[in-house]
Design a protein around this nucleic acid. Sequence first.
RNA 1: GGGCGGUUAGCUCAGUCGGCCAGAGCGCCUGCUUUACACGCAGGAGGCCACAGGUUCAAGUCCUGUACCGCCCACCA
Length: 1040
Amino acid sequence: MSGQLSKVYEPKITEEQANELWFAHKYFHAEVSGNCETRKAYTIVIPPPNVTAPLHLGHALNNTLQDILIRFRRMQGYNTLWMPGTDHAGIATQTVVEKRLLAERGKRRTDFEREEFVAHVQAWKDEYEACIIGQLKAMGCSCDWERTRFTMDQVCAKAVRAAFFKLFKDGLIYRGKRLVNWDPATQTVLADDEVEYETVQGHFWYMRYPLVEPVEIQGERFEHVTVATTRPETMLGDTAVAMNPNDPRAKHLVGKMVRLPIVGRVIPIIADEHVVLPDPESEDEKARYSTGFLKVTPAHDPDDWEIGQRHGLDIVNVMAPNGSISDKYGWGDAADPDAQALLGMDRFEAREAIVEWFRQENLLEDVREYTHEVGHSYRSHVPIEPYLSDQWYIAVKKPIEHFKDKSGEGTIEGTDVPVNSLAGLALKPLLDGRLRFIPERYARTYQSWLENLRDWPISRQLWWGHRIPVWRCTARTGRGHPSKTIHPDQYQIELQIRMDDFSEQMGTSGYHVLVHPKRDKFFICSSSNDADEALNKVIDYRDFLNSSGAGDGQEIPTFTLPFSGKAFTAARKICNMVATFEHDEDVLDTWFSSALWPFSTMGWPDNTPELKMFYPGDVLCTAREIITLWVSRMVMMGQYCAGDIPFSDVFIHAMIQDGEGRKMSKSLGNGIDPLVIIGSHGADAMRFTLASMTTQTQDVRMPVQKMKLPDGRTENTSPKFDFGRNFCNKLWNASRFALMNLEGVEPDGFEKDKMTVTDRWILSRLARTAAAVTEQLDEFKYSEPITELYRFFWNDFCDWYLEWIKPRMQDEQQKPSAQNVLAFVLDQTLRLLHPFVPFITEGIFQKLNEVVPARKLQGLAEAADAEALVIAQWPRGLDCFVDGEAEKEISITQDAVRAIRDLRSRYNIAPAVMGLSSAKAPLETARLLDANADLICRLAGLRRFSASVDAKKPGNAATAVVNDIEIYVHDVVDADAERRRLEKQKQETEKAKQAVEAKLNNDSFVAKAKPQVVAQAREKLARLSEKLKTIERNLSHLKG
RNA sequence: GGGCGGUUAGCUCAGUCGGCCAGAGCGCCUGCUUUACACGCAGGAGGCCACAGGUUCAAGUCCUGUACCGCCCACCA
């Protein structure tokens, strides 16, 4: 059997065979050897899925859309690269591994050594990375698998260190304080999304803070101010009382001092807009509860921290990491016995004690009930504590000196963002129109985020990730002896002094980091350009890059000093002062490595051929939730590190929700596993359905149902996928039918003149479809081309063309030309469908290649040969087939067929009854119908059909009126039914006619509407009048 | 609190620059072993286009407001 398709379409077999073929020939591999000039590159870098879990349906959508673009461009002849890989997803992965270890072994992270724990995470990563890549391959993703990267592999790690170094050198990385979400029970830092808000019935306590000197306002003597708080225990760390500058009392009170109860600390009253003015009538709950005085505790509240920053307030941390009151972490004035009594108390215990103290001292003015949301740890379920800690930051609005030449200086209009800052580098391309969002509205999210950007905290208190390439040193206290353990803050200060020492010698300032395992080997990162010359001698930059991988437990890197002279002396001096070195315990924010992904995957910072060929890329395809966290940072770092934006188009696609509009999630149990769908419906069916649901505005709602698998398990599925499965099944069967009729086709047997109107019509429809699909894909539209192709293939090709071609296949005269048209249309259709349903189209294409090696319409068009559809040429040059006449002719023919079918159905004429039919129509239409009588007979199940200008209606015929045609189906006897039917049609027509008449009788319509619209209305009226007359005439015949 | 999107047939969604009697798929009803396909073929029923105003000769489409649903960001003294 020479290459016929199997009777039943089995996705699994087709998918396996296609993947085998594609992988054997490495069709997905992008070569760098080609010439950029002659063969343009087209690049998409995958949003690397997290290695936390297998891919879900959202990933399936995301990657389907990317694959459609890639396959489309590959067929258009671009040198396409789709760069694949996965993301280590720091906190998320560490968390799932911690959960697994706890569940399976009852062990916590802290029960392991760091290296040991990281090895467990690594094992998890290996497992899920393999799983994810398997899933992507099963979906048909045509990634360049040879280039698969992981955000923590050696290549990416090198880029991370290079970027960090570069930022460091430019003075963009600094050490700063930040309030983190601290879980005092487990004593870990939580990410924002690990904080769960719970409604808590709490209190507002109104506490009096005595003024150092009483103040008189409008004759009233004030001895104290009253602050309202839900957290009295933090008052120990208060360093100011704030009030709104618009408060009428402010001019009397701002600048005055109060004495903090218990502690005795004297703190100022300051003015800050943040404070809500009191208003008992207000709708704003805060205003109702406010006294107008806000206690400011910079170390224990994020807002207060901001206020503290604005006013340069002291920061007093009064808690230990376990949440107890302590004077060991920054509280220096706890000498008062009342304060001493609180030390060691738990924060809630202290709260009660403090309230009680105020009560005793008659300083508690009021207590009111208050319901509010309080952040709790998702792990321990205790309230989280905003806790002050040291973090590394990237300065995003700091001007970068050496970017001045390239980007200019000053700020971007209407913002405080310097053009040569990181934020500016990301913002400018959008404003210049070089960076485009599709749909456009998402540009605003991006823009406003960047305009209001704050410095980026990049350190995370985790073990899984790129360990921060910074080594801190402790200073020597005596000759050759390491200092005893010093508190981190202290050695920071210590270090700073030494640094300044060094800076002085180097004629610069602001050094920060050094590494020094042995006395004669070390390196320094500079944060100033001025020191470049000297430092370049000190450090071999490349050595730094080749130093330890992030967090992989290698030794601290060492370097031999390649210099002498002043710099040497300076460096040497530092070494002598340093006792020990500690690799920073923290890792980098996951987004740091993600930000580099578009070029780290191509080997940056080395000047690789890949970068030259494929960077900058073309499109980023992602969901909207990470526009800020990821997209903006990629642009930022792309500009900063690789010198250009990483892509010019950002396509933001829909999110998939369940039938109730909820996000699909594990906890809700409403997720759908792509592999389950691939198993039940096939990968192509899944892709087709997902793409068909992708419109520009709507999120995708996917009703979820339970499905029983053959092995008895129950899985989630959705009836939506039947859409794709039905289509694939139809495609398979129609192709099978076509191929059965294409055995032994002679390419030279085609004669242009033997083309029928149906041939010209289907070629015309093909040409229009190809043009539309191409244009829509250019515009990142997915549901439209699917609709277009669906209509063309199912309605035009299958329902009409294939039915019409059947008799021609029995006719040796007509067969050769018909076959060639059929082969050509099938060939082109497969090409157009391939990006959406790659497996099945490839499978059919391979058979087509066997059965009809050359598809061409001699003298008209030729389908370019290809050994595989994946690399076949995208349809082009079909415009010559557009044929308005043929389309009109077929349209009239179809109308006639539908009218006859309708009558047959209404009169219950059995399909087997090959009846007679005739039609009366204006001359031209009548001729046309007559010429196509065979086509009408074939699809309307008739023995004979004829049309003429003066056809007479047989007495027992049913009548249908279509436009200017009157169609009679003979030998239908039910006069009553006929009358009812015609009456109904009459009513409908009258209604339509009246509507148009009303419009035309309206003078202002005729006067003001576009002439074209008026003319259309007149035509329509004429048509309807004619139709109505015909119906009435038929009715009167019936009555008579 | 700020921003964005949505509300059209029982369900999931299209609907261009405002202009034919508002469309598709699924589901539903009727008929069909038509030699590619019942995951199919033919036909049919089904709509106060969320609500209230406004602009216009004309509004599903533009403007204003309301309600509900969803998402993102910020915040929670």
